[in-house]
Design a binder for these strands. Structure first.
Lengths: 348, 348
DNA sequence: CTGAAAGCGCTTACAG
DNA sequence: CTGAAAGCGCTTACAG
């Protein structure tokens, strides 16, 4: 390995001066600087990250701990998160550590041990639970961290989208089109984002002076078969909805499948909107008719996570280290205006 | 952060002795040892990985560099490899770094820079090409590394399966059952494993004194639609095969689909075998009839990779740092014995 | 503009 | 069985 000492010896300057020249400090003769840099390049010098880390107290390492599972189940979302985050962190010259814990391991403890070993500058947490113990632990440790998503029960830095707006925007769009019975296929409501979306839907109803029917609001893991099953149940009920809001595009796929199975046309007989995070396997424009709804590409989250975490590590203070990502709405061709009678039933 | 100095001060021993006590060296008074350890636990001491790394020249970090893609395509295989490897490396107290390169980045150079920065003990390479430049570069650097798979053009440590045996075993099984026209849906033959499998199939034919028909041996990316398309082509040809060997289970799924589309029964009219790596989305027993073929669970590869790489880093010498993983055969219910006439056509 | 010195936290010969 | 000292490679006050 080439060290500062090697360069120092090679051109007869002190290690101090070589370090400063390479560091780009102002108080170095420009000629010296260029000479040092040229020599460093020629020798293939790279600063020793470990030595630098020991001196500066920063390793440049960001870690993410994920719980391991014994059964290899392909979690496409987790994969994209890992790849996206790694790419973003690698691109800024930092190092991304993925620590897959053994099944049943105590991830709180793991975070603490990793941090105490002094080699981790900060953590990224994903999928926070309510009252997530990992968050409490990291706060107690004083470790820099940022959460993708939010734990409403604790105050912490996060990057998230406005999930209440997700529900509100889609419901509002449908209510404006005249729909009065709107089905909602929501995520599992033990998760905060799903709770917020439901609140958004209810708020939109309230704003329009429309009573929301709780029987139309269902909660489930967001995969296509569940969307299909739930939609069939809604359609077969005595008072079916005229529109459905799906929590993600796979759920919407299930909605389309169920409609097809019942000979119900989208959007003529049933309007459909869905939230799209840009990562799910079914992109909205692969739907026929093209699926409308809210859009918040998860890929923008990596940049925000890396940025804010860097600020937190550098202990920069600002108004907040959290960030709510933008939300856009895409009309698509999957929702249409209808007329309804006083009971909310469609009038041809 | 709690350091040796803190413990030293706390119990009035030298830092030297504290270090030795915690390191479990023999020449420390057992009482002292216990006292030091108790204090370390009480204070929540964790050795500083960076300081230790600087001293020992080992960081405990294993890195994997993967090429980034701009389009987030879910690569379930890569995901399992990353998760499996990370879990295995994390479990042994080492650190797994995933470096996702920017699209178009020079991964050779990246490996070199990471290694020269002194913070990486070794690398895991996956998906080696023929004459892979990354391998040449790492060899030139003298960096410890191990390859999952093989580059036959260079000598290096690797963990792989015997792909020639994969082809040989399945072809031999079918030949013994009386098949004389065996279709092969192989992977892309620019990859070494696919070349080896073809060789194995040919070797089995030679051993049985049967001429292999090159027209029956097809090469393609191993996904179900390709398997379906290739099988339809084989079945619709003037002299269709009586058996098909598929490179993986998705290809076999395509074979089953094509057979169903043509009203051809498995195994009555068509025998099918496939190689199963235990990770593909279609497990053999989810097939009807249950799919037979060779099995080599990829999950055993992580342990081997981590083991051998650790040996290489420790510069232990042994007969070889490479490993060929076990292969088993599972009969399933997808292949049956047939009688054939002299031209290789099935006789009822 | 340049250099000698200290120190980050650890490990490990070396001397007692 | 124990301790003082050196050193891993770097950065950074401090003094010239």
């Amino acid at each position: 390995m080439v060290t500062l000492k090697d360069i120092s010896r090679e051109i007869g300057l002190s290690v101090t001066q070589v370090s400063r020249a390479l560091g780009g400090h102002a108080d170095v003769n420009p000629d010296t600087r260029d000479r040092v840099r040229a020599t460093a390049d020629r020798l293939g010098y790279r600063p020793n990250a470990i030595a630098r880390g020991l001196k500066t107290g920063r390793s440049g390492i960001i870690a993410m701990v994920v719980a391991g599972t014994r059964t290899p189940e392909s979690n496409a979302h987790l994969f994209e998160i890992v790849m996206g985050l790694s790419a973003e962190i690698s691109a800024r010259g930092q190092t991304f550590v993925l620590h897959v814990a053994e099944p049943g391991a105590d991830t709180m403890r793991l975070h603490a041990e990793l941090y105490r070993s002094g080699s981790i500058d900060g953590f990224v947490l994903i999928g926070p639970a309510s009252d997530d113990p990992r968050i409490a632990r990291l706060k107690k440790l004083g470790a820099p961290f940022i959460v993708h998503g939010r734990d409403p029960a604790q105050s912490h830095a996060f990057v998230d989208i406005d999930n209440m707006a997700v529900g509100q925007v889609m419901a509002d769009h449908l209510l404006r089109l005249g729909h009065r019975r709107i089905g909602v296929l929501n995520g599992v409501e033990s998760e905060f984002f799903a709770v917020q979306r439901r609140r958004g839907v209810l708020a939109a109803h309230a704003a329009h002076g429309v009573a929301a029917d709780p029987a139309l609001m269902l909660s489930m893991p967001m995969i296509a078969p569940n969307g299909r099953r739930a939609t069939l149940a809604l359609l077969d009920a005595p008072q079916p909805p005229t529109a459905i809001i799906a929590g993600n595009t796979p759920l919407a796929l299930g909605v389309y499948q169920a409609a097809a199975a019942r000979g119900i046309r989208v959007p003529h007989d049933l309007s459909v909107l869905a939230h799209d995070d840009g990562l799910d396997m079914c992109p909205p424009d692969s739907f026929t008719p093209a699926l409308g709804g809210t859009i918040a590409p998860l890929t923008t989250a990596w940049v925000a996570l890396a940025d804010h975490l860097a600020d937190i590590i550098a202990a920069k203070d600002g108004p907040s280290h959290s960030r709510i990502l933008d939300l856009t709405f895409r009309k698509g061709c999957s929702a249409r205006a209808i007329s309804v009678d006083t009971r909310g039933h469609a009038v041809p």
